[in-house]
Amino acid sequence: MTSLTQADPSATADRDTPDHETDFAGSRGPRGAVLLRYGTAIACLAVIAFFAVNLPGTFLTWDNAKGLLSIAAPLLLMAAVLTVPLRIGDFDLSVGYQAQFSCALVVVLLAHQHLTVSSALFVTALAGILVGIVLGVVIAWSGVSAFVITLAAGSILLGLEVKISDNQQISLGIPEAFTDLARVEIGPVPLVILLEIVVVGLLWLAQDRTLWGRQISAVGANVEAARLSGIRNRMIRASSFALVGLGCSFAGILLAAQAQSYYPNAGIGLLLPAYAACFLGSTFMSKGSFHVLGSAVGVVFLAALQNGIVQMNYSPAVANLIQGAVLVLAVMSAQLGRRLAA
């Protein structure tokens, strides 16, 4: 087996400078380069500045930041791991169902089976990994679109969730040691925020500093070239879905800890925001490709927008209009950047 760098220099070239792009320092116009590369970050700062001016004394406070980032933790975990298969070109539509299945499982294990907190967390994480492995193996070896397989998997997971929970809210019998996971602080920083930082940092290192991360990028850039270079494409695809399963299991655990209960459809509402964060983040420091740091910025953008809208007491109809308009403008800024930079 030859090394990636020796046998496939074109894979790296394809990944770094696709046909429709050239280097930012080259022929790109300066305004287009700024919009394309920093469009999401600029939009995020603009949103924060708007709410800081209109909500003086409440928005730009440490307490508000802690609450905002803590509530966004399940979404950030999901968006961060979702970035990996997206780099390959695979769409996982089961992530919301995976999260809510894990939410139901951990609560049932604690409240009905009376497992210890550590045992319940281990079993739930293991179940998440197994779900991801099964999905990855089926997708990689069957040749069927990930879009179709994960859509079907979501229905299966929903059935399992209803089976183990009887489709009833569960709030009694959950130990306080479990719900404390969402409240405990280490110094001035909540544990969940530290978890977010660790997860994003590890995924960034794995994505940009390891052979596995380079292989993920190579498969996404050119599947055939990656295969000829000796990369086991199927194993790489399967590993990306296993990682998603693990991340979604922790997202479901945090959902349960934050709500101090399980309730039906707990995680399905995270599906669209997770993808929105990933696509918004694809304009951040990554030349239009998916990147975990960009996805994290996308989550912060969405969380800040939601937090400010709630504090300003907009009606649900107006809030939806504002969120949709801001998302469209953020994405359009990236597209405008491409045109100006061409």
Rank of each mutant, 00 (worst) to 15 (best):
L121W: 05
L121N: 07
L160C: 13
I133A: 13
V144D: 02
L203Q: 05
L172E: 15
V198E: 02
A153P: 04
G136R: 05
Q169C: 04
W141I: 07
W141A: 06
I197W: 07
V184P: 05
L135E: 14
V189M: 14
G187I: 13
A146F: 00
F178S: 08
S145G: 01
E185W: 07
N167G: 04
V117S: 08
L121F: 12
E185F: 09
L205G: 03
V131N: 04
V200Y: 06
A177H: 00
L195A: 14
G159H: 01
K163V: 04
W141K: 13
D208H: 15
L157W: 01
L115E: 03
L194I: 15
L194M: 09
G154W: 08
T150G: 11
L158I: 05
Q168C: 04
R209Y: 09
L126D: 06
E196T: 14
T150R: 09
H114L: 13
P188D: 09
L172Y: 13
A182V: 02
L211K: 14
V117W: 04
F122H: 05
L160R: 04
D180I: 07
T210Q: 04
W141Q: 05
A120H: 08
L130F: 15
S118F: 06
A120D: 10
L158Q: 12
S119D: 13
H114T: 12
L157F: 06
S119K: 08
A153M: 10
L181D: 03
W204T: 10
S119Q: 10
S165T: 14
V189P: 00
V162R: 11
V137M: 06
Q207P: 05
G201E: 04
L191T: 11
L211R: 15
I174D: 01
V162N: 13
L126Q: 06
V189H: 06
V192Q: 13
